[in-house]
Design a protein around this nucleic acid. Structure first.
Lengths: 361, 361
DNA sequence: AATGCGTTTTTAATCGTTTGGTATGATTGC
DNA sequence: GCAATCATACCAAACGATTAAAAACGCATT
């Protein structure tokens, strides 16, 4: 009961002392109350040198008292700045992108930026519509990871020609000049093969979900390169597209047909169906089929067997990309050279790729 | 090569036919070129009855030709509408919230709304700062799920007093009058106990991650109610707070000390540490300890044993909440009564709670 | 007292869109 | 034949913040 009362008082303090909240407080309200012009208030709040310390103090005091903050539309209109960035990603139900968003949001908040989120759902058409909806002025910049379907870039060129700062991350187009933040995909594809090979695999498969995208295939190229060096003929035949809604049985038979003794799951969405397929076919992971997956979820450590993964520095990637973007937004086209930052991912070996001699008891 | 050429042509069409893009196109540009006033253009684009069909046609034609779209700041300033909603959630690395976002985004896009995302990271202070940063005008409405730490609501009242439409979902405060979308939490807490009981458990624990929040405890109350009905004394002692960074060993000993034969993981973040603890302590899930978790990830079906979960209609919840919000935004305070929508979650029984007689071979 | 200089403040224009009031013919009604 | 009505389009005033340019002021120097 006493708690309730104190809470009530607190609320009243906050709410009623500050003036009837129906009255909009804008720069003019403040100006009138202080007997100065609106420009004085504006300059004072922007800490202009033209304003005396005394005036600044008075303005600031009243502004905080009324919790004033400038109308974003008005200043946006005037300055052509929105303090807003957009993030366009294929999806969010994926640990990788979730972590990226975390990174983006944390940097953006500190720098005073707001973050708009858009999901392309891997669809080119949606991606195009999203970019179209980002009309002139709504955003100061854009962070983007391409949809799998995207093979053509006029919608992006369109945005770039409007001088909107743009930073790509993870799924980046080789065809477009822009800042990019990526991981060492090629190397990882290559090393993933090496890892499986060292664990005794000789028939290594590469699983894609849905269609392959020729522009996003560095990882795949690393895979192919590694297979070639092992003198495998027709390495492309080791790449298998797994349809979205595949049955356990079909998946299992596919693995059998190719007689893989090791597979690389190129995205985390494949882990569940793969595990499920092996279970239904009584294919023992680690013993009969070694598995390495590109994914970021913590459950990898508690699957049985525990899953060997390639861990991406997802949050870091979000942060770096956002920092690059904000730098580009705030430094008026200083550099025309575009940076390509490469972060290092690492393979974390676990039971699913243990060499036979050391197989779990 | 021929593909490249056709692509080039396509791009040129899009980019150069449409006029030098350095020239900003605004309503005035259109007006001048059409020899009409800006108001005519504006009204034509808004399909006003004051404008003749012929004029409308001409305006629309030129507008589409130049891909004109009104400057959002200008119309925002004028109309005091931003076509933007904000989502404030505790985190995004959680399948539940990820799915909610999916739902929100899908509805918002169709209705022409943009979605700002903010993460409170379960911190009250961050949540407060976020709400503060949502100054007058930036958003038309707000969707929100409370941070665990939040026990006091002046920051929210503050926003409400500015007449910003607000819809809560999932983690909703009982203390605040607003639209709410929830699941049948109480019932689920109750039924979770019943499910474990039916599987033979007699010492059932409820695992929380971090601190309990008295305002978000319907699920917990359902749990307590069920225990009471089973004539368990001191049911509160069955609720255990698991610290964020708990060691496997500590976790395991905790389970032993309480001699639980069944536990409810109240959030999905607990699954990994729980599984890990059981593994390290050689505690056999399903046989020695039955587990039921509130979570939404697909991997539940491939853990071993497979995990009994409570599946929330997360995407549905995001959609419903957004629909409610947009309705509230667009229908000027028609109803003063607030809706509370309750969606049904369901328990999906899997191996981790199989009764002993049927234990996996 | 006039001039100049530096500081501080005000005036007024601007950003792009929307909209209430108004003007212009043309049409209709009495 | 004159007023009322209607369709159509324009004018100008918002919306709120920012910022060049101008003005006002204080103070010191000549």
């Amino acid at each position: 009961m006493p708690l309730d009362i104190s809470e009530g008082i607190f609320r009243r303090n906050k709410t009623f002392t500050t003036r009837s909240l129906k009255t909009k407080i804008n720069i003019q309200t403040l100006a009138k109350e202080l007997n100065v012009s609106t420009s004085t208030v504006s300059k004072a709040l922007n800490d202009s040198h033209e304003i005396s310390d005394e005036t600044k103090r008075r303005v600031l005091e009243l502004a905080t008292k009324y919790q004033y903050s400038p109308n974003p539309h008005a200043s946006g209109l005037r300055n052509n700045k929105s303090k807003t960035i957009a993030v366009v990603i294929p999806e969010v139900g994926n640990s990788f992108f979730a972590s990226v968003i975390k990174g983006i949001e944390s940097v953006a908040r500190v720098q005073g930026y707001h973050v708009l989120i858009y999901l392309s759902n891997e669809s080119f058409e949606k991606e195009r519509m999203i970019l179209e909806s980002l009309q002139l002025g709504r955003i100061d910049g854009l962070l983007m990871s391409l949809a799998l379907e995207t093979q053509e870039f006029s919608h992006i060129q369109n945005l770039l020609s409007q001088d909107i700062p743009l930073v790509f991350f993870d799924r980046v187009p080789q065809e477009i000049q822009a800042h990019k933040v990526v991981t060492n995909e090629f190397e990882l594809g290559y090393r993933a093969v090496q890892h499986l090979w060292d664990s005794g695999c000789r028939q290594i498969g590469y699983l894609l979900n849905g269609t392959s995208n020729s522009t996003l295939n560095l990882r795949q190229q690393g895979f192919l390169k590694a297979l070639s060096e092992k003198n495998i003929t027709n390495p492309e035949t080791h790449i298998v597209e797994i349809p979205k809604e595949i049955s356990d049985d079909t998946f299992f038979r596919l693995l059998q047909d190719k007689s893989f003794d090791g597979v690389i799951a190129s995205v985390e969405e494949l882990v569940t169906p793969l595990w499920s397929a092996c279970k239904s076919g009584a294919l023992v992971i680690a013993q009969e089929l070694k598995v390495l997956s590109f994914c970021d979820f913590p459950l990898a450590t508690v699957l049985s067997p525990t899953l060997t993964t390639v861990k991406h520095p997802a949050t870091e990637m979000g942060k770096k990309a956002t920092e690059l973007l904000i730098a580009q937004i705030e430094k008026p086209r200083k550099t025309l050279s575009f940076q390509s930052i490469m972060l290092q991912s690492e393979i974390i070996p676990r039971e699913s790729t243990l060499a036979l001699s050391k197989t779990i008891s």
